[in-house]
Simulated scan of single mutants.
Amino acid sequence: MRKVLYIFGILSDADVAWMAQTGVRRRLGDGDVIIREGESTDFLIFMLEGELLVTTRRLGQIARLGVGEVVGEISLVDSAPPSATITASGNGLALFLDKTKLMHKLDNDAGFGSRFYRALAVFLADRLREARGSSAGNSAISDEMGISEDELDVGILDRVSAAGERFSRMLRTLSNNRISS
């Protein structure tokens, strides 16, 4: 859940409302592949309920992702095909944000673009630190940094309350929208 707090702590209420109104909620069934390694994807995906498995052909399963995680973000940044397959583990619910619509918004709303890319950079930095900590066999990102895996960076702590409220508000907005399958 803390992953979405990084993003929603930086975005404005209007930004999150736009995402909720533009995105499509989709039910996920056990085993549904939402991103396939090597095949381009058209969506940025926010996990709302359930769990995802991340696998690669070379390494097998490399991660489990839960509520508040975002997938498809790396392909959004560099346009390369995904480097992993993302599969639903059990039933779930996700918000699919069309990349074409998102890119249009990023190109035409400088404020949104600035906040979105900053949020994405913070999110990706956290994911990198977490991966480096895991590869070193630590449960903490780095002993020398003094930040444990479940802690938020001090710079984002003051935004956590607002971020949590934004995520809750988005979920309420989405509950009024139709779910596609």
Rank of each mutant, 00 (worst) to 15 (best):
M1E: 09
V4A: 13
V4W: 01
L5S: 10
I7S: 05
G9K: 04
I10E: 08
S12G: 11
D13S: 11
V16H: 05
A20V: 07
A20H: 05
Q21K: 14
R25T: 13
R26Q: 14
R27V: 02
L28N: 01
D30V: 00
V33Y: 02
I35H: 00
R36W: 00
G38R: 03
D42V: 00
L44G: 01
I45E: 01
G50R: 07
E51D: 04
L53W: 00
T56V: 06
G60C: 06
Q61W: 03
Q61C: 07
A63W: 03
R64V: 09
L65E: 07
G68F: 06
G68P: 11
G68Y: 05
E69L: 01
V71G: 09
G72Y: 07
G72E: 08
G72K: 10
E73T: 08
S75N: 09
L76W: 12
A80S: 13
A80I: 03
A80Y: 15
P81M: 07
S83C: 06
T85V: 04
I86T: 04
A88N: 04
A88W: 05
N91M: 07
N91H: 12
L93R: 07
A94V: 15
A94C: 15
L95N: 07
L97S: 03
L97P: 02
T100V: 15
K101E: 12
L102V: 06
H104C: 11
K105G: 03
K105N: 05
K105P: 03
L106C: 10
D107F: 07
N108D: 06
D109M: 03
G111E: 14
G111Q: 13
S114N: 08
S114H: 12
R115I: 05
Y117H: 09
R118T: 12
A119M: 04
L120H: 03
F123L: 15
A125Q: 09
D126W: 09
R129C: 10
E130N: 08
E130A: 15
A131Q: 11
S135M: 14
A136Q: 11
S142M: 03
D150W: 11
D150E: 13
D150K: 12
G155L: 13
D158V: 09
V160F: 15
S161M: 10
S161G: 13
A162D: 14
G164C: 08
G164I: 07
E165D: 14
R166D: 04
F167R: 01
F167D: 00
R169F: 13
M170T: 02
M170S: 10
R178Q: 13
I179R: 04
S181K: 07
